[in-house]
């Protein structure tokens, strides 16, 4: 931070191309720009026949520019143009009270709470399983195949079963969604933490032995800290999976609220723009969550003196 600030003031006389902000963001901006251009072209191509059919059905004469304009302002386009998605997104985020059922903020909050709870449960489960696996070869042999199997069953098939079974025992709303989300996200955490807990150098383990440390001390003073980089790597994967899990859990259950519910409603009524706006909300949520994990990681890394 201070570095770039310094560079900023120092480069006052330099050209734009040497500006640190330019150097940092130019590649990203270029790619985003290219994607947007491709998106517009795709939107025009994909919606072309739709719009032409419309004109022809109404038997109004049209020019090429009218046609192209039409492809970018259709009410239910096959592929909405970027500006349509953004305006729908902005509209449904800022256009309503955050608690209104048409507000994307409301739906995002519903999905977010299931995501966070699922993530928490998944992290606890994932770390717990990793601990068991690391501490016992028998458990490793008996647990690991089941853990791997659990991830081979398609979640779309499992989700309705979960919801029905959990509903039968009186669990509804947030919890079933969180459980599905936890079911998906514990896996990378288990795998990552098994690796992390076994990361210590044999020499460090020998040292602990020469001090006759208890297994608990070995865990807290050696295995845990060694696992931290692995923990954050797997948490980053897990939190996005957890979000996907929460959204997927909303799909087959006829949920009334949540990003999944918006996607579902959008596809029922052919509201493609609404679908894309909901997807955009999911993307914003995902990057926010990853950003949060990233920030925590950096804080922890600083505490642990990680060389930067």
């Amino acid at each position: 931070m201070t570095n770039s600030a310094l560079a900023l003031s120092a480069s006052g006389g330099g050209t734009l191309r040497q500006h640190p902000l330019f150097v940092r963001y130019a590649p990203i901006a270029t790619i985003v720009l290219a994607l947007i251009v491709i998106w517009y072209i795709a939107a025009v191509l994909m919606n072309l026949s739709l719009v032409r059919d419309g004109f022809e059905r109404e038997e109004t004469p049209y020019t090429v520019s009218e046609l192209i304009e039409g492809t970018m302002s259709a009410e239910r386009p096959l592929l909405p143009a970027p500006h349509q998605v953004i305006s729908a997104f902005v509209d449904s985020v800022f256009g309503y009270a955050p608690t209104a059922p048409r507000s994307l903020v409301y739906h995002s909050a519903v999905t977010l709470s299931a995501t966070l709870l699922g993530f928490l449960l998944g992290a606890l489960l994932g770390i717990g399983l990793a601990l068991m696996i690391v501490h016992s070869r028998v458990l490793e042999k008996s647990l690991l195949p089941w853990i791997i199997c659990s991830q081979m069953v398609p979640i779309l098939a499992l989700a309705p079963i979960f919801v029905v079974v959990l509903g039968a025992i009186g669990l509804q709303g947030l919890l079933p969604k969180s459980i599905i989300s936890a079911y998906l996200c514990f896996f990378p955490i288990t795998i990552g933490m098994v690796k992390g807990f076994t990361a210590p150098d044999p020499m460090q383990l020998d040292l602990m032995r020469t001090w006759s440390a208890t297994p608990r001390q070995v865990l807290s003073k050696l295995r845990w800290p060694s696992a931290v980089p692995f923990l954050f790597a797997s948490l980053k994967v897990a939190i996005t999976i957890s979000l996907i899990g929460a959204i997927v859990a909303e799909l087959p259950t006829g949920a009334e609220a949540g990003i999944g519910a918006r996607l579902l409603a959008g596809s029922y009524y052919g509201q493609t723009i609404q679908i894309w706006a909901a997807l955009l909300a999911a993307a914003v949520l995902a990057s926010g969550l990853i950003g949060l994990v990233d920030l925590t990681e950096r804080g922890v890394a600083r505490q642990m003196g990680t060389r930067s």
């Binding site: 150098d201 020499m203 800290p225 642990m304 003196g305 990680t306």
Partner: peptide, 8 residues
């Protein structure tokens, strides 16, 4: 090797 704990 020194085998220090790098996070300490």
């Amino acid at each position: 090797a020194p085998a220090l704990f790098p996070w300490r």
